[in-house]
Nucleic acid binder design. Structure first.
Lengths: 157, 157
DNA sequence: TATTGTTATACTCTATAACTATA
DNA sequence: TATAGTTATAGAGTATAACAATA
């Protein structure tokens, strides 16, 4: 049984008490996140492209030449994590590390032609996925959910 | 630098374009989830107690004698995952697997006395954590966020 | 044959620590 | 001494596949 199927079956589970879990905002967020993650692979039709890998390619594409440490800051990732994410995309021919003349310790990260095409495709898939994710919500509900999540992430300590 | 510190620094990042990420609901959910996860350990004062491990103990405590396969259905987890979560709590003396006379393949899962006390403590910590998580929201905003997340998780395919 | 649980294995995500090269 | 990036290692979380015991 797949994760998605399990999640659906779980919604139908009756007679089992989750204790205070159902009153916790954190649990509701985790559950929504689980749904988004579980359906992402199918949406991009490539099990190896995870939401985070896609996010990294998105930031690289929007900021040519950014240093690895800056990519990490943007997505709140440690340096080793950035290294591994970029290793993945480099091994797939989608990005390249270019030495910078200013500081020879660091690299500027750039999309390749292959990477540009891949990103364009993934962007479209991610948009479709995101729309499907909120199919049960009205447009205004979706907007309000987005606003509240952004506010929470921006103000939480 | 800790994950929490990185997340805060990331909120202040300026001049870096995240492309369409900032328009995706899925990304907003993932970010909120990250905040909740990163602060959970501190709230329960035990790095080894993750949100999922806590969730499992909560379900066990609320449903004495439930079978492992039912625990898995309730939290949308595979059988090996359930096995490992219960191994963790059993090794900490918090749960026990009791053979059932009805079906000798399966176990009923029960809290021990230690587990009951541990759960009571974790429940209190989780409540505090959950309140802190939404400190930037008004009470009605918090309720609306909860409602929309539940609706999304219940209707998403 | 089907189901419950376990074990084996693998991969993502993430961390810290230690290392190299450079500043 | 400090920083950019890598490598090594570890642990959480999750999966699938194969297995043993039982139904």
């Amino acid at each position: 049984m797949s994760a998605v199927a399990r999640r659906q079956a779980c919604n139908d589970t009756i007679g089992v008490d989750k204790g205070q879990l159902d009153r916790l905002l954190g649990y509701a967020i985790a559950r929504a996140n689980f749904v988004g993650d579980a359906t992402f692979h199918a949406a991009v039709r490539d099990r190896s492209v995870t939401p985070l890998r896609y996010a990294m390619l998105e930031v690289v594409g929007s900021n040519p030449g950014l240093l690895q440490v800056q990519l990490g800051e943007t997505l709140a990732l440690s340096r080793p994590t950035v290294t591994m994410l970029l290793d993945y995309w480099q091994s797939h021919g989608c990005i390249e590390r270019r030495s910078t003349p200013i500081d020879r310790r660091s690299f500027g990260i750039f999309l390749t032609a292959i990477g540009s095409a891949r990103l364009a495709d993934l962007r479209a898939c991610a948009c479709v996925h995101d729309r499907e994710l909120s199919l049960g919500l009205t447009a205004s509900e979706r907007a309000e959910l987005k606003r509240l999540l952004d506010k929470l992430a921006g103000t939480a300590n």
